[in-house]
Nucleic acid binder design. Structure first.
Lengths: 125, 125
DNA sequence: TTGACATATTCCTATATCGGAATATTATTC
DNA sequence: GAATAATATTCCGATATAGGAATATGTCAA
């Protein structure tokens, strides 16, 4: 099978660096016309339109027509799943020192418990 | 050009749902043999090996040999860039009400300032 | 209507997947 | 050494990009 469609979920949508740049432009919460994004990022207009299209399908941005412009606005709430997912690992880099200590203690404990009786791989259940 | 290589950066690495599942298994910080992951996720062994390989190249997991097992451990610190990136948008979904109010105020302000003189798209500079 | 501007869409190509099947590699045990 | 277990790697096919070029669509203005 092929790769999951980027148009399907947020994680894939933000995997593309240019798309993150586009989001970066909209990050201040204001509306931006496609042309403004093009200018700021120096990307081709079709490229920007396509990326915005992907982001729109995922719901990360929304559009309204204003004259001949399409004003795009960030819908940041759609990024929450990413935040929620990665937040779980926050503790691993905050409190670095205590975390390193914890790991050392855990490893010592593991050594005491399983104390390697010729079958180290026996941690399944 | 084609899609960015998943082996290149963390954002792409975690874009794949199965890979996130693998990370989920390792999330408790302990070591896991490939076979354990296979059992827990009911994925094929080659698939797990490949996903772990990608995660390893990106640095999200590390391996050590232990007998005939390869023990994989999460290197959660590598996920920090994702956290840092998405954290910027946190304010958009916390304090929802005040945020909505802010938006309303901002829009009102915009209307007062640019007061739409027939050229709404003139926010570039 | 015509022209100019803003944006979207289509067509194309090169590339990169993911997963399955089969196979290779490495380590252990007898 | 031979058999076995654990894991990695290779080969494959179907699919899905991303970007460029060209074009279509839509909107305003004179």
């Amino acid at each position: 099978m092929a790769r999951a469609a980027t148009t399907t979920d947020v994680f894939n949508a933000i995997a593309e660096p240019r798309r993150r740049e586009v989001i970066g432009v909209l990050a201040d919460g204001r509306e931006y016309a496609v042309g403004e994004v093009v200018l700021r990022l120096r990307m081709s207009q079709p490229a920007v339109s396509k990326h915005l299209g992907v982001l729109r399908k995922v719901g990360v941005v929304s559009v309204i027509k204003r004259g001949q412009h399409r004003m795009y606005r960030l819908n940041a709430a759609e990024l929450k799943p990413v935040h929620d997912w990665v937040k779980v690992f926050e503790r691993y880099w905050t409190h670095q020192l205590s975390q390193i200590k914890e790991r050392a203690e855990r490893k010592a404990l593991e050594r005491m418990v399983s104390s390697d009786p010729g079958d180290p791989g026996d941690r399944q259940r």
